[in-house]
């Protein structure tokens, strides 16, 4: 088996969380890779917060009026629908989106997420992220386990400004799958390339570890 990048592992594992028929909003960057690894028989509808469902890759002819939420050329599948920003966020906030997958700067053991600003350094704005975490039924944070400098990103308590409070359902990194529960962060799966000790060492938050930890599921999709 060849080795895979952190991004490939994360995107592939997140794809395994999708259920047939789900309406899904994928954040910009890493999360958009998720579509590449959907298992056979799992069809999802992608919602694009700039105003449509049925998001598809851009075709050979670029339509300047059709872009994804990152402003990049996009396509729309037959059966898709376009609408305005009011409808788009009514779908998002009103619980009509089953899953949202976002990147993260920090997540903590209370299910808080910080991913929209670093005071004094980067203030891009929250865009639609705060609405997505407030309204989607399931919030998956897809991110590398630690920062580029090795600092932990899964913390006891976020110290960056929050995107949402107590809203994270699942954290998927290249090392582990961690579920946010009432009792705290439950370590559910680890990567075939990682050990429990490594995951614990790279996580500041307290992890609940009970019994044998499963190997990350669904990675056979990487071979497709």
């Amino acid at each position: 088996m060849r080795t895979y990048s952190a991004k490939e592992l994360i995107a592939c594992r997140v794809a395994g969380e999708m259920r047939d028929g789900d309406v899904v909003n994928l954040g910009i960057g890493l999360p958009t890779l998720v579509s590449n690894y959907l298992p056979e028989g799992i069809n999802i509808t992608l919602q694009s917060e700039n105003g449509f469902v049925g998001l598809a890759p851009a075709g050979s002819e670029i339509d300047p009026d059709l872009v994804n939420a990152g402003g990049k050329p996009a396509g729309i599948f037959p059966g898709g629908a376009t609408f305005d920003s009011f409808m788009s966020f009514a779908l998002i906030r009103g619980g009509h989106v089953d899953v949202t997958v976002l990147g993260g700067l920090q997540v903590d053991q209370n299910g808080n997420l910080a991913n929209w600003m670093i005071p004094g350094k980067m203030v891009p704005g929250m865009g639609g992220a705060m609405d997505l975490v407030a309204g989607a039924k399931k919030v998956i944070v897809a991110m590398e386990h630690t920062a580029k400098d090795g600092a932990a990103k899964i913390l006891k308590s976020c110290n960056l400004p929050l995107t949402g409070k107590g809203i994270v359902t699942l954290i998927v990194t290249e090392l582990a799958v961690i579920r946010v529960t009432e009792e705290g962060l439950l370590l559910e799966e680890i990567s075939p390339y990682a050990t429990v000790e490594e995951v614990v060492a790279k996580t500041e938050a307290q992890l609940i570890i009970s019994g044998d930890i499963a190997t990350m599921k669904g990675l056979e999709q990487l071979e497709r």
Binding site: E49, D84, S85, F86, S88, F89, I92, R93, V123, G125, M126, G127, G128, A129, M130, D131, G135
Partner: peptide
């Protein structure tokens, strides 16, 4: 800065 859905509403 205003969340996009809040801005729309």
């Amino acid at each position: 800065l205003v969340p996009q859905g809040t801005l729309a509403e």
